[in-house]
Computed example of a mutant assay.
Amino acid sequence: MKLSIFLPLAAFLTLTAAEPSNINDDISPCLTRCLTEAAVVAGCISQYDSVCTCPSPAFRDAMKMCLDYSCTAEDATMAQELHKERCGTPPS
């Protein structure tokens, strides 16, 4: 019985532990915060969950609002570059 709980938890932790390898050291703290907050708003596992974040209007809208109110123009440019890299298309 306990094994049936352990296996999904182990799979989740493995996925979560793999995320730090995706971290781009050039991302500002402000952009990182916006990416994380937008992922939460969109209901995605994390900012690296491109299957969820790329097509999500909620993610896009939350990112735009956060970038507009909190970050620099350089952060907004970097966000567009990250979107192209992660999603394969420019943001709409």
Rank of each mutant, 00 (worst) to 15 (best):
L67E: 01
V41F: 03
T14H: 02
E81G: 06
K84A: 07
P91A: 08
C44E: 07
C54H: 07
K64M: 13
M65R: 14
V40F: 13
R86W: 12
E37G: 05
L82N: 02
A62I: 04
V41N: 11
A79W: 00
C71H: 01
A38L: 08
Q47I: 00
C34A: 12
T77I: 04
Y48F: 13
A76K: 04
A17Y: 15
K64C: 06
A10G: 12
I23P: 04
L82E: 03
L82Q: 02
C30M: 13
K64G: 10
A76C: 03
A79K: 00
F59N: 06
K84W: 02
Q80P: 00
P90K: 08
P55Y: 05
R33H: 14
D61C: 04
A79G: 03
I27P: 11
C66D: 01
C71F: 09
S70Q: 11
D26Y: 14
Y69F: 08
S46E: 02
Y69M: 09
E85P: 02
P55K: 00
A10H: 02
T16A: 12
S4L: 15
T53K: 06
G88Y: 03
E19I: 08
T14L: 11
L15M: 07
K64N: 15
E85S: 14
T53V: 14
S56A: 09
D68E: 10
V40M: 11
A58K: 15
G88P: 00
F59I: 02
D75R: 03
S56F: 06
Y69T: 13
I45Y: 14
M1Y: 12
D26Q: 15
L67G: 05
T72I: 11
S50V: 14
F6I: 15
Y69N: 07
H83D: 05
H83E: 01
D75Y: 07
I45W: 08
R86N: 11
L35M: 02
A18E: 02
F59G: 05
E81V: 03
D61K: 08
S50F: 15
A18V: 07
S21N: 04
N24R: 01
T14G: 13
R33T: 07
Y69I: 12
S92T: 14
S50W: 05
E19R: 15
A42D: 04
N22T: 10
A18Y: 14
P20F: 06
G88R: 01
M1Q: 07
R60C: 09
I27K: 05
K64P: 02
E37P: 01
M1K: 13
A39D: 08
A76D: 08
C66K: 10
D49T: 04
C87D: 02
C54L: 12
T77W: 04
R86Y: 10
Q47K: 05
S28Q: 09
G88E: 07
F12K: 10
E19M: 14
E74R: 03
Q80H: 04
Y48G: 02
S46D: 09
L9G: 09
P57T: 09
P90E: 07
M63Y: 00
R33V: 12
E37S: 13
P57V: 00
V41C: 15
A11M: 12
A17K: 13
D25N: 09
F6T: 05
L15Q: 11
K84D: 07
A58H: 08
A76T: 10
T16Q: 15
L13F: 15
L31W: 10
